[in-house]
């Protein structure tokens, strides 16, 4: 039994590392956007478009890192559109976000047709499990560099929002637009930049999906991961460091279903496959009840006002 426990544990650690990266990038991007006082529900569109652009670029140029960059640029352009439209009077950012989600996926499906068949060069992993003779440990510790980039970015964002002038401006814009204007800050410009940067990160999350894991482009690739990542931001209460834990937890529970079946616990796999969503709901209910949660929400968000 301890063997079986080890298998599941390793699968969950491996799953957390493999599956969490796109969630992490999208959640960090959304955190930055929401900290400036806007909600961009369209990041699912960025994720899918980023995945397609990354795959197409990697296939055409032979360089997967060029694909990662192109995915970021595509995400930036898409989200800049969101940021620009939302500054117009009487525009609802949530409705625009849903429109941009459909626009992003639609563009990706339309232009992605010729790239379903070919195989593009993919990102390499760093083997960190060389010290272990156990093949499972070695497999679980095959880590893509983008995972570490995501971790570093989370720390950087956390530090930047807390300690720098730029961070202060973003937070102020998100908490009280009136105060920001009084300070002479252009609220629309800050939000445009925050939304576009968030879109850049979400695009890179998409590149991870198509260029590393699962590592191919097709139309059902994301299956709603971008939407879940937006929900993770509330779950992480707008804190970039908590986004890391939320993404890791989500990835680990996602690996639970297949891992349990592989050691022979095959009853009720529909339930285990739903585990990440059930867990998110439970934590959302618990955290929504605490007073601290409502204090941490940026005051300018349309869902808070």
């Amino acid at each position: 039994m301890s063997d079986a426990f080890f298998v599941v544990l390793m699968a969950m650690i491996g799953g957390a590392i493999r599956v969490s990266t796109p969630f992490l990038f999208v959640a960090l991007g959304e955190t930055l956007t929401e900290k400036s006082g806007r909600i961009n529900l369209g990041l699912e569109g960025n994720l899918v478009l980023g995945a397609m652009v990354a795959y197409a670029t990697s296939y055409s140029t032979g360089n997967p890192w060029a694909g990662v960059l192109a995915a970021g640029v595509a995400g930036t352009v898409l989200s800049a559109g969101h940021g620009w439209i939302c500054k117009l009077p009487k525009v609802n950012d949530i409705a625009v976000g849903i429109a941009f989600m459909n626009l992003g996926t639609g563009l990706a499906f339309f232009f992605g047709k010729p790239f379903i068949q070919p195989t593009a060069p993919r990102l390499d992993a760093i083997a960190l499990g060389g010290w272990s003779s156990n093949p499972q440990v070695r497999q679980a510790l095959m880590v893509n560099p983008l995972f570490f980039v995501g971790l570093g970015l989370a720390v950087f964002l956390w530090w930047m929002l807390k300690n720098t002038r730029w961070g202060l401006v973003v937070r102020m814009t998100g908490d009280s637009a009136a105060s920001a204007r009084a300070m002479g800050v252009s609220v629309d410009l800050v939000r445009l930049l925050a939304t576009a940067s968030g879109g850049f990160l979400a695009g890179i999350g998409g590149a991870f999906l198509s260029l590393y894991y699962p590592g191919s482009w097709n139309e059902s690739l994301s299956s709603g991961q971008g939407l879940m990542a937006v929900a993770l931001v509330i779950f992480a209460r707008w804190n970039p460091l908590r986004c890391v834990w939320a993404a890791l937890l989500f990835g680990a529970t996602g690996a639970l279903g297949p891992a349990l079946q592989s050691i022979g616990i095959s009853k009720g796999y529909y339930f285990f496959n739903a585990a990440p969503y059930i867990l998110t709901l439970i934590i959302m209910i618990l955290s929504a009840r605490s007073k601290a949660a409502s204090r941490e929400a940026p005051g300018e968000l349309s869902i808070v006002k």
Binding site: Y213, P214, Q225, Q261, Y270
Partner: peptide, 18 residues
Amino acid sequence: IFTGEWSMPVREAEATNA
């Protein structure tokens, strides 16, 4: 290993690894 969906690439990759 049943994935529960006709098309779900991430879980198919997880199932193959498992």
